[in-house]
């Protein structure tokens, strides 16, 4: 058995445990435990996806998706896990867009967990069209990205203990898998009222 198969089986087993833990925590309204369980599961998914990306096995299964549903589900999911104000900005969201629902969900979710760590009061999660691109945005009101992250060259993220670098590395990989008519997806970071993460996907 290859390591990757063993890893997949192990991840499956651990996620089963986490699923049971999360369901129990949710049933008794235990927000902290719920978040720990779900975030731990997200970390495992990220690890496996990074492994696949490194082996050139990360492939996007692109289909027609509804960004409003994706953001809506993530907002509801995160609200259960935090006392911060989580809001959705969907006013200029398109009805349909083409992307890999699961990969994009993973990337946006990672950006949200990162924002939860630094936000003071609120996080805004949005989807909007911007001149032929779909922009998934995750904005917090924290201290913003450190200069070395903003100054990065794509693909060479400084790795932090919380795994931020890993998340951004993966976001780059996933964005690059979304190409159409010669344009490929990309990640943009900025400091506005806090850290602003943007995942841009071409029409």
């Amino acid at each position: 058995m290859q390591f990757v198969d063993l890893a997949a089986l192990t991840v499956h087993g651990v996620k089963n445990r986490l699923a049971i833990l999360a369901a129990r925590a949710e049933a008794r309204g235990d927000r902290e435990t719920l978040r720990d369980a779900l975030e731990a599961a997200a970390t495992l998914s990220r690890l496996l996806a990074c492994y696949k990306a490194e082996k050139g096995q990360l492939a996007a299964d692109i289909g027609a998706c509804t960004p409003v549903d994706l953001v809506g589900e993530l907002v509801a999911e995160v609200r259960q896990q935090t006392a911060l104000t989580i809001s959705a900005d969907l006013e200029r969201a398109p009805e349909l867009w083409f992307y890999d629902e699961h990969l994009i969900r993973m990337v946006v979710r990672d950006a949200i967990y990162n924002a939860l760590r630094y936000a003071r009061r609120q996080v805004v999660i949005g989807a909007r069209t911007r001149a032929g691109w779909l922009d998934f945005g995750v904005c917090d009101d924290g201290p913003g990205y450190p200069p070395q992250v903003l100054a990065r060259a794509a693909g060479s993220w400084p790795l932090s203990r919380e795994g931020t670098g890993l998340g951004l590395y993966l976001a780059d990989c996933v964005a690059a898998l979304h190409c159409n008519n010669g344009r490929c997806g990309r990640v943009e970071l900025a400091n506005t009222s806090g850290a602003a993460f943007h995942l841009l996907l071409p029409e």
Partner: peptide
């Protein structure tokens, strides 16, 4: 995808 909350299942 596991794990998911009852609320996600509902939506």
């Amino acid at each position: 995808l596991k794990p998911f909350t009852a609320d996600t299942l509902r939506q």
